[in-house]
Simulated assay, not measured.
Amino acid sequence: MRLTRPMLALTGAVAVLALSACGAGGDDEAKAPETATGSLEQLAAKAKCDPNMQTDADEIRQAICTTGKDKYILATFATDRGQAEWLSGAKDYGGYYLVGRKWVAVGQEKTVTALQGKLGGTMEEGSEHMNPGGSHNKGGHHS
């Protein structure tokens, strides 16, 4: 199955919207570890999640991960370019992204922040227009 950029962006957007109602876990404010690497299964094991595979293609592998009450999307990419293109499209839909080398975790801010304590990575935030209450909106932008 060949996945196009719009399909991948739409998948990411649907995941963000579907997970927006999911609960977040406890705080993990400890210093983030070195950024993890590996396959989707290896990253899921480090995160102690139970992955439910959604996409298994050459370019991207994507699963819904569950850790306790927390749910998030974990995706791995064949290339850095594929990851960059996916992030570029997905961020238009808002959300919180934990980014590592050839992998991304997407979910609620608290969930992704806690995950950073297990996987390392860099926290990024999606578009301010699709992320009500996010840090981009603290400047007083009201609709």
Rank of each mutant, 00 (worst) to 15 (best):
H136V: 04
K31R: 14
R61W: 05
C22A: 10
W86L: 02
L3R: 12
Y96M: 00
I60H: 05
L8H: 06
L119H: 08
G134W: 02
S39N: 14
Y93L: 08
I73L: 13
L8T: 15
A84K: 14
T35D: 06
T111H: 00
Q83H: 06
N131Q: 12
G139R: 10
A63I: 11
V106E: 10
A30D: 14
G139L: 15
S20A: 11
D92P: 00
E59L: 14
K91N: 01
L87T: 00
A9F: 07
N131G: 04
T111R: 00
C22G: 04
A90N: 08
L19R: 08
A24R: 04
G25N: 06
G38M: 14
D58T: 12
G23Y: 04
L40I: 00
G23T: 01
D80F: 01
G95V: 08
M7R: 15
L74F: 06
T111E: 01
L43M: 03
K46E: 09
L98G: 06
P51Q: 01
V112P: 09
G126L: 08
A47P: 01
G94P: 03
A47T: 03
T111L: 00
A18C: 00
M130L: 11
T122K: 13
Y97F: 15
Y96I: 09
A36L: 13
N137P: 01
G140T: 03
A9Q: 09
C65R: 02
M7D: 12
N52Q: 08
P132H: 09
A47Y: 04
N131F: 03
D50Y: 05
T11D: 04
S135W: 10
G95A: 05
K91R: 12
K118L: 15
G126V: 10
T37C: 03
A32S: 15
G12L: 07
E85P: 06
D58N: 10
T4H: 05
L43H: 03
G133Y: 02
Q62S: 13
G95E: 05
A45P: 09
A15E: 07
C65L: 08
T67Q: 12
V99H: 05
A24E: 12
K138G: 06
T11E: 13
M53A: 11
C49G: 01
L115P: 08
A47E: 09
P132I: 07
Y97R: 03
V106T: 06
G89T: 08
G100K: 04
G38V: 13
V106Y: 02
A36D: 05
G26A: 14
R81T: 10
K48N: 10
K138C: 08
